[in-house]
Nucleic acid binder design. Structure first.
Length: 817
RNA sequence: GCCCGGAUGGCGGAACGGUAGACGCGGAGGACUCAAAAUCCUUUGUCCGAAAGGGCGUGCGGGUUCGAAUCCCGCUCCGGGCACCA
């Protein structure tokens, strides 16, 4: 066949045209209604992999569809170009991270273009570009001014493999580094933090208004971990001037306190340890200090090794009774007050500890009849609690807190699991933190007009645990902006999540050199109407970006009423191979370029849309290539149909309602696009293609066929842009652009069907199928049903006791058995 | 341990409480061809049956309903998140 489908040629042609003509560039004053569609900007790890292909296929579909539907669609792309791999490569090969990164960006960009995904490249941002770094640093300084960035000495997570500290969010539940897998240890270091905890309540409450996957919202809620309760003081027995403050979510159970526990690191440990217990306590504290997080957090092993008696007692303010004070490693200094009252009757950990140390148990909530468990944490009437007796849990909690507040012993309080965001990194390939240290003036911000602070290129890359900047005299030594005296620069750089916490704002106004972006312009586009990315960012990136948006809005940098950056979020499923996520580090990537060279980008895109629900994970197997080939075969079929190369087949009957079928297809694809059901949208198009194909095989041609094929091409245009653009141009003449056409509209009057299949059931079992008019009445349906010989046989002479009729598809005859 | 998902042919997957298995892959048979590829046609859950037709079928056990893959209760297995958070 001379005029076959040649994906490589047409894909090259159209990609060049979209690029050269700036087809998807959009200006900020575009009068069409704005729509901001964004895929999470990638870390440039080289050429695109199938995860990128999947992500950008979904994004590009939306960009093209919304454009055809009449929107001005903002579709930007950039690169999250700071990060460890480039620096690790530098240590290994000596190549500076910048050319290494630029080279990988070029590769990734080229494969994104070969996919046919279109962006307004004028707005491209790169985290490591000085014009972007300048504003990242500027934003840091604004946060510093209002105290949302601060520096303190803190026990931090140290990864020996990465030779840097990590944020809590980067340490996995088993105590290992999410990147290197090394066991993370604790170190006491001066570090920079963002006060994300100041926004804990807002970050929690505003989740409710977001059109996000429920599981992502749940993950964030769990991460923030809000718990309400009370703090109060326990006076040390015999020394009323010394008090221990405890936090509890169950102040209603205080009458059941039989001991109290401090974290081993608690500042009062020395104060409370009596002489005769000093040796034992000292040994315990020393042992816990040398334990890694993993060892400490394990729930394995004997409980009786996990605590020690201090020798002191504290007084329960509710009943005046003294109880012993223990240290235990299961109480954490970093949560609440680092000290607890222990109520074994209503807390299983306390129960276990009490059992191991021979401490008494007093139940203060009556467990249900027949309760066989140990600690009972449920609701029930209070017992053994004097003036709380008989109250339900909520009432007792409220009354207990009131009691504490009235006496000035304690107060109602809220605790969060969320910690402040540790942002400093002892690495080179990141955005420098723009402060200097002056012997006289302490921490001094680098003035705005001296930004960006850039790292020098002539550094040595060595895995020393400190930034290479620390050993670069030229960078390190500077003068104090305040007094002009000698000073040293901060050599730590920022976590790369800082870069990605505001890039979506920069896209709206990427060339601005007076401000990170104009708030009015940002207000025009934001919040992002559709954000698309991987589930792996459910906590880290999405929480940080929300925090930045709120903080910047409060600072007046971002629009004041912009409380959330991403109105609608879609998290695509992972692509797995052999049971694990496809990734470069696992070495199980399937390179898309081979597909671009053979079946073409359109077929690969169609495959990703067709293979299953976008939110579900997908297993790449030996059979996967067959499905990709099937998609290529389908496109070749569309090609033949649209170029008049369908061979007539003797005896094929024409289809009689092509117009109706067309409108039904439009309605269906619309619905499927709306609910992210692309796999069924593709299936509907395939089904329709088969219908039109059969029609043409019968020898039919003419306006009806042309209209059907045109509609099909319009509906496929967002999914497979190259082939549809080429076919449209061939059918409509030079200059005709399918993606400039209006999105087709389904006419409800034409989407109806004339005939329907009525099913007849006897006792819910299908016994016959009868072709009926779509507007058939109930009486007629019942007449037809009873007239059916098959139904008659199934009734076996019985008369239906009841008839359920659902026009026009169902009659159910119910007979008693 | 707690909280979310999920389980449907040989495979990926469809199915507002109303025809289970759309669409595709793979398989079988056929047309075209010297032959192959490509293309086109037919067929394809399973069991009984020559056929007509019928039985059985959505992880397991119950329930609600005229009617359940779908809703409810109780399990099993798989995936994910959180996990000494007081």
């Amino acid at each position: 066949m001379d005029d076959g489908y040649d994906p490589r040629a047409i894909e090259r042609k159209w990609q060049a045209r979209w690029r050269d003509e700036g087809t998807y560039e959009v200006d900020n004053d575009d009068p069409r209604p704005p729509f901001y569609c964004l895929c999470m900007y990638p870390y440039p790890s080289g050429a695109a992999h199938q995860g990128h292909v999947r992500n950008y296929t979904f994004g590009d579909l939306i960009v093209r569809h919304k454009t055809m539907a009449g929107h001005a669609v903002l579709s930007p792309m950039g690169f999250d170009s700071f990060g460890l791999p480039a620096e690790n490569a530098a240590i290994k090969t000596g190549v500076h991270p910048r050319p290494f990164t630029d080279d990988r960006i070029a590769q990734l960009k080229a494969s994104i273009e070969r996919l046919g995904a279109v962006y307004d490249w004028r707005r491209e941002v790169r985290s490591h570009d000085p014009s972007y770094m300048r504003w990242t640093q500027w934003i840091f300084l604004r946060l510093l001014e209002v105290g949302l960035a601060y520096r303190r000495r803190a026990p931090v997570n140290w990864c020996p493999g990465c030779q840097t500290v990590l944020a809590n969010e980067q340490v996995l539940a088993d105590g290992t580094c999410e990147r290197s897998g090394d066991v993370v240890t604790k170190r006491d270091l001066e570090q920079w933090f963002f006060r994300i905890t100041a926004y804990a309540d807002q970050l929690l409450d505003d989740l409710d208004g977001l059109d996000w996957p429920e599981r992502v919202k749940t993950m964030q809620r769990n991460w923030i971990g809000r718990s309400e309760g009370a703090e109060f003081d326990l006076a040390v027995d015999g020394r009323p001037e010394v008090t221990v403050r405890v936090f509890t979510t169950r102040p209603d159970t205080t009458f059941g306190m039989t001991y109290a526990v401090l974290a081993p690191e608690h500042p009062l440990v020395g104060e409370l340890t009596t002489a005769d217990q000093a040796e034992e306590v000292g040994a315990f504290v020393a042992r816990v200090a040398t334990e890694s997080e993993v060892e400490r957090q394990t729930t394995e092993g004997p409980v009786d090794k996990r605590g020690v008696f201090t020798g002191s007692h504290v007084v329960n303010p509710f009943n005046g009774k003294a109880v012993p004070v223990y240290l235990a490693d299961y109480v954490l200094m970093g949560y609440g007050t680092g000290a607890i009252m222990a109520v074994p009757g209503e807390d299983q950990r306390d129960w276990d500890f009490a059992a191991a140390y021979g401490l008494p148990v007093i139940r203060t909530v009556a467990p249900p009849e027949g309760w066989k468990g140990e600690a009972y944490t449920g609701d029930g009437p209070a017992i053994n609690s004097e003036w709380l007796d008989g109250l339900a849990k909520d009432e007792a909690v409220a009354k207990a807190i009131d009691w504490l507040e009235e006496r000035g012993i304690g107060r109602r309080t809220v605790n969060y699991r969320l910690r402040d965001w540790l942002l400093s990194r002892q690495r080179f390939w990141g955005c420098p933190i723009p402060v200097v240290y002056c012997p006289d003036h302490g921490v001094v911000a680098v003035p705005d007009d001296q930004l960006p602070v850039l790292a020098p290129d002539d550094v040595e890359f060595r895995p020393t645990g400190e930034s290479p900047l620390k050993s670069h005299e030229g960078f390190l030594t500077t003068t104090c902006p305040t007094c002009g005296g000698p000073a040293t620069r901060e050599t730590d750089t920022m976590d790369t999540f800082v870069d990605s916490s505001w890039y979506f704002l920069r896209f709206t106004d990427a060339a601005n050199d007076q401000a990170p972006f104009d708030p009015a312009v940002a207000a025009h586009w934001l919040p992002v109407d559709q954000y698309i990315g991987g589930i792996e960012h459910a906590i880290l990136h999405l929480m940080y970006a929300r925090f930045f948006t709120k903080a910047l809005a409060d600072l007046g940098v971002a629009p004041k009423d912009l409380r959330e950056p991403f109105a609608r979020l879609f998290t695509q499923g992972m692509i797995r191979m052999g049971g694990s996520k496809m990734s470069k580090s696992k070495g199980n990537l399937v390179d898309p370029s081979g597909y671009f060279d053979t079946v073409g980008a359109d077929a690969l895109r169609l495959f990703h849309l067709f293979v299953g629900p976008p939110a579900d994970d997908f297993d790449w197997t030996d059979q996967t290539d067959e499905i990709v080939n099937g998609c290529a075969r389908y496109l070749a079929r569309v090609w033949r149909l649209a170029t008049g190369q369908v061979t007539p087949v003797e005896g094929t009957q024409p289809v009689d309602d092509l117009v109706h079928a067309t409108h039904r297809l439009i309605a269906r694809v619309d619905d499927d696009y709306e609910r992210w059901s692309y796999n069924t949208a593709v299936a509907a198009c395939m089904e329709f293609t088969n219908l039109v194909y059969r029609h043409v095989q019968s020898g039919a041609s003419g306006l009806e066929v042309d209209a059907a094929v045109d509609s099909l091409l319009l509906l496929l245009a967002p999914m497979t842009p190259h082939i549809t653009a080429e076919l449209w141009e061939r059918r409509k003449g030079d200059g005709a652009l399918v993606h400039a056409e209006a999105w087709p509209e389904a006419d409800p009057a034409l989407a109806v069907v004339a005939r329907e299949t009525m099913i007849v059931q006897v006792n819910g079992k299908v016994r016959d199928r009868i072709d009926v008019a779509a507007d058939v009445g109930e009486a007629e349906m019942q007449r037809l049903a009873l007239a059916s010989p098959r139904v008659e046989a199934a009734l076996e002479g019985r008369t239906p006791a009841r008839v359920v009729t659902r026009p026009p598809n169902l009659v159910n005859l119910v007979v008693t058995r």
